[in-house]
């Protein structure tokens, strides 16, 4: 319809920009030359990986002022202290020749570690999921993200990968500490390695479920508000209300109903899944008797639903 050659750009009123130019207000813009970019352009995968890496750092407060690190590293320390204490006690007991006894009496082992640090892991999700999402919505940075070479769902997935792996690290690190410590403390290291290796799959399986479920749930909720406080409150409500409700139902209507309801309570689900990976066929809140594999199923269903909600939210959101 309308065509025109590029040569028409001859108004020339901005000067041809030799060395200084283009700034009428005291020449505050200097032309030191603009260069084009002829280098490689990596695709969407690189972009998503970069967003995930950046968000992972953000979830630990890395590259930010010190106060951004207090919460994540504080929680990580709290989650790790029991492991360190347990190892210390074990080392001491060994010197005193009471290793067997201390081992049997210790409340801190792989199997029970999640119960010990479960709250810490949940707090991490409640504090850091809003950290990852709220700012971009509140300051409308999404408009910049969505106009890059990624799709909207990529943003959601990258954030989930970032928070998920941060939480995976949080859950796994203390247990790996115990793992390595037990091997090093053993009198016969090679046989200790053979003894301990089979314990890795349950540790990892349980950690992956925990990280995916809690990160997914927390992000899916945080995606709906540009206010950090609301997001954290919603995450607390989503985990604590069902937990308390299951307890109350157990008191009022008996263990069977409580067992059924516990299948939609994230905290109960993760306890149940923990029981499953360590070989217990049955689990459930006080007195209830639920097959533990049901909790694993519930964990996967809930994590998938949370992931879908997160993705759909970012597909629809108006940047």
């Amino acid at each position: 319809m309308t065509t025109r050659g590029p040569g028409q750009a001859d108004r020339g009123d901005s000067g041809s920009g030799q060395v200084v130019a283009a700034g009428s207000a005291g020449g505050s813009i200097y032309d030191l030359g603009y260069r084009g970019y002829q280098g490689v352009r990596l695709g969407r995968r690189h972009a998503v990986a970069s967003l995930a890496r950046q968000s992972f750092r953000q979830s630990w407060g890395l590259g930010r002022p010190g106060r951004a690190k207090i919460v994540p590293f504080g929680l990580a320390a709290i989650a790790t202290i029991p492991a360190v204490v347990a190892l210390g006690v074990a080392a001491l007991a060994q010197q005193l020749g009471a290793a067997q006894m201390a081992d049997a009496a210790s409340p801190i082992r792989y199997e029970t570690y999640y119960s010990v640090v479960g709250q810490v892991v949940f707090l991490f999700a409640a504090a850091q999921a809003p950290e990852l999402l709220v700012r971009d919505q509140r300051h409308r940075v999404l408009a910049l993200f969505f106009s890059r070479a990624i799709r909207r769902e990529d943003y959601a997935i990258a954030k989930l990968l970032a928070l998920g792996s941060a939480m995976l690290l949080l859950v796994v690190f203390p247990q790996l500490l115990i793992f390595v410590g037990r091997i090093l403390l053993a009198s016969d290291i090679p046989s200790a390695i053979t003894d301990e290796i089979p314990k890795l799959p349950p540790i990892l399986g349980q950690a992956v479920l925990t990280a995916w479920l809690l990160a997914g749930l927390a992000l899916a909720l945080a995606a709906f508000t540009p206010r950090r406080a609301y997001a954290t409150a919603a995450i607390f409500a989503a985990v604590l209300v069902p937990l308390v409700a299951v307890g109350a139902i157990g008191e009022l209507s008996g263990a069977d109903l409580a067992g059924a309801v516990s299948l939609i309570s994230p905290a109960d689900i993760l306890e149940g899944a923990n029981a499953f990976v360590y070989g217990h066929a049955h689990a459930g809140p006080a007195g209830a008797d639920v097959s533990s594999w049901l909790y694993v199923l519930a964990a996967i269903v809930m994590a998938v639903v949370a992931t879908l909600v997160l993705v759909l939210r970012y597909r629809r959101i108006e940047p």
């Binding site: 280098g39 490689v40 352009r41 990596l42 695709g43 972009a47 970069s50 967003l51 890059r148 070479a149």
Partner: peptide, 13 residues
């Protein structure tokens, strides 16, 4: 820098 990476540029570029 982050925005450049999201457009596909390698980190150093």
């Amino acid at each position: 820098t982050h925005m450049a990476e999201l457009s596909g540029l390698p980190r150093s570029a």
